[in-house]
Every structure is written in structure tokens, then in C-alpha cells.
Design a binder for these strands. Sequence first.
DNA 1: GCAATAGTTCAAGGATTGTTGAACTTATAG
DNA 2: CTATAAGTTCAACAATCCTTGAACTATTGC
Lengths: 104, 104
Amino acid sequence: MDKTLHHPDRDQIELAAVLDALSDPIRLQIVQRLAKAGEASCSSFLDYGTKTNLTYHLKRLREAGVTRARAEGAFRYISLRNEDLEARFPGVLAAILANIQDAA
Amino acid sequence: MDKTLHHPDRDQIELAAVLDALSDPIRLQIVQRLAKAGEASCSSFLDYGTKTNLTYHLKRLREAGVTRARAEGAFRYISLRNEDLEARFPGVLAAILANIQDAA
DNA sequence: GCAATAGTTCAAGGATTGTTGAACTTATAG
DNA sequence: CTATAAGTTCAACAATCCTTGAACTATTGC
């Protein structure tokens, strides 16, 4: 496994990419849960899809700069890049988070 | 031509669809210009793409509930559904508009 | 060591996206 | 009526997206 997964720098995060990452219902649910839980392992999202599918969606979120992945042993802990996003695109994530409807 | 183009009702507008509509650089530029100009004809966006291509992007914006199209003679005037979006997803459009960088 | 768990990579497939040119409809101008 | 301009529809195409199962790597526990 790559020791350092690819995360874009704060100032390389692009608005269109962030919105694209958040344009999928599954990824919106993931982000909503992260907003509540703060940090969560990949497998805690298994109710949203298969393992492979989650790897895919979590990768899209990460590469868009929406989330960060931290490796700890066999686990990956995912969290929102809240401060980075707020610094780069003030208000955007907060407004979206406030409007994700629960479940689907 | 259809007298009434399809526009979703305010409460049928979905967050994921709005974000998807705004996840394309061309459509972001269109929306930015609409925010400044208030109302504009299709052809006023010709510097962003071909006629056919604009029909495509404007349709995506309209069907997502982001814009409204009003026919007047041979023209179509496009505008943002500002109040509808603010009522449905408070703060979202405003935050995004405030963060679209000019040009590309 | 061996087995189990966490997660990724690969390859495949169908669905959607973005783009274009040609042909079309509708409306205005002369 | 004829010509022109505003937009749309259609058909095609390459590219990307989402989903899956099988095979893989890496870590933990016994």
C-alpha cells in the first residue's frame, strides 16, 4: 500500500471537482456521516455499497480534496478536510452539509 | 418547439442534481455570468462553446432546477432560479457563486 | 508459522457525459 | 414569400462513470 495516498494541496482544490465529488448520492451520504462522526474507517460505510465500490467513492472524495485518509495499522480513517475547504471555498461545504437530507 | 420547456417544481429540485449541474466548468461560467447579468439569451454564451453544446449545457442546468428559460419571440432568455434554490437549499447557491473564479 | 480482517488493484461491462455537424423548426426582417 | 437568425433535435463518437467479482497486499491475532 502506498504510504502516502494522494491528497491535493489546499490551494490545488478546485471548485468544480469538489462539486463533482459531491454530486453523487452515495458520496453525499458518506460526507454527511463524516460530518457527524468526525472520523470513520472505510468499512463503516459498507451499508452504502460493496467494499470495492467504497474504495472507488472514497478515492473520488479524497482526490477532489474533500476528505483525508489516515492509515493506522490495517485501518484507514477517513475525515472531512473541513478547514481546508472552508479556507479555500468559504461557506460551500457548510451550506451543502446543512442541506443533505437523511437517508435516501 | 415546446411552449413550456420542462422545469422541475421547486420541491422536486434535488441537491445531488444541482451539484451535478454545477460540477462542469462551462456550466459554472454560465451560472456566474447569469448571476451578474440577471438574464441572458442562449447565444450570449457562444464564447463558451458551439450552439449545440450550449443547448446541451443549458438543458442540464434547466432540468436540474438551476435555471429557468423564458421564450420571447425567437429568443430564449435564461435566468437563475435564485429564490427557488434559496428556499430549497438555503445558502448553497450563494456560497458557490461567491467562489467561482473568473475565467478559466 | 497460519488464518482472518482491512483495504486496494485489476479487468470487465453497461450507462452516462461532453462534444460535434447536419438537418430541422420557429420567428423576425426585408 | 424569401432569406436569415435563434435554438433544438438527431445520430454519432470517444471518454468518463459506476458497479461488480476475483485476485491481490498488508496488518493483526493466535
